[in-house]
Write a protein that binds this DNA or RNA. Structure first.
Lengths: 157, 157
DNA sequence: AGCAAACGTTGGCCAGCCTAACGTTTATGA
DNA sequence: TCATAAACGTTAGGCTGGCCAACGTTTGCT
């Protein structure tokens, strides 16, 4: 964007404001991650591994919200750098069991640090009360809109 | 996303909430646009043309916030359907002058209608006061973060 | 035994945002 | 006046995050 002149009847629209601020947030977070050689999917996968332990790629995908087909690439990237290990599951030969390495845990620390910093930067202009308000409003929207989108009648078998 | 299990320490982060709600918004708006055969860039370009009149591609890019290289494709798409016209500027042979056709104006009407509908859908769960709050908070963030992003002191080397 | 389902993988698409490069044309200023 | 800088349009490509379809393998259910 070159932001020279400013016309635009759409600039006050909630969807626009939302999109723009999300862009800024995305950029802040992304820059933070990439400053330690990572990106969003890396954080999500590493954090999921630490939180819930080793698992198959499919399970990790469900837990982290990363699409199965994107998991492959993500795990490749992380495995290449020794942050994660992919081993065949002896009890189910369809599965790979992916687990976090100590190096991966260290990288997760770094990513988390950057993530926290970018939250601060993002919210800099807001008071604590305003931050609270924002969080609540967004959550409200999210809850409303994820009902329809998120989970149909998924059963866990 | 399959949203089966729900772990996730990042789900409360402002940047995440922002990103997710923006995704929903983006989807709502995008679906609305595509239901009349358009997309975001089409709306932005058509609206800019109606608001400020015919202009060169570069000027339109500046006014609409669409990158120059994306303008080419956008104008191609719209010109193909007769919604927009591209004519060489006789007074400056570097330029094309792009202008809105009556058909284009009609399409803009349709896009605007869909856009308004999707705003309603997006904000459905919020009261008027909450909508106001949200708008203000987002604007505050936006103002803060666009200062730095918008215009650096271009070094000409 | 046979079929359906889960799994991992590949390859592709989309929108939005962006960079680099290139040829043409115009404007500037030395 | 002439060289150089700048603007313009264009092509090609990359990135992130989100998807879909297909395929072969392996497993589980009946």
């Amino acid at each position: 964007m070159e932001t020279e002149e400013t016309p635009a009847r759409w600039e006050g629209l909630p969807s626009w404001l939302l999109g723009q601020t999300a862009n800024h947030a995305h950029r802040l977070v992304g820059d933070g991650f990439s400053s330690v050689g990572g990106r969003g999917y890396h954080y999500r996968l590493l954090a999921t591994l630490e939180e819930r332990g080793p698992a198959s790629q499919a399970a990790l995908g469900r837990r982290s919200g990363i699409h199965l087909s994107d998991m492959v690439a993500t795990i490749n990237e992380l495995a290449e750098r020794g942050l994660v290990e992919r081993a065949p599951d002896p009890s189910d030969r369809r599965r790979n069991i992916v687990s976090l390495t100590p190096e991966g845990a260290r990288q997760l620390r770094r990513l988390e640090k950057r993530l926290a910093e970018s939250q601060d930067e993002l919210l800099a202009p807001l008071s604590p009360e305003e931050r609270q308000q924002l969080t609540e409003l967004l959550s409200k929207l999210l809850v409303h809109h994820s009902r329809r989108t998120g989970s149909p009648e998924e059963r866990w078998r």
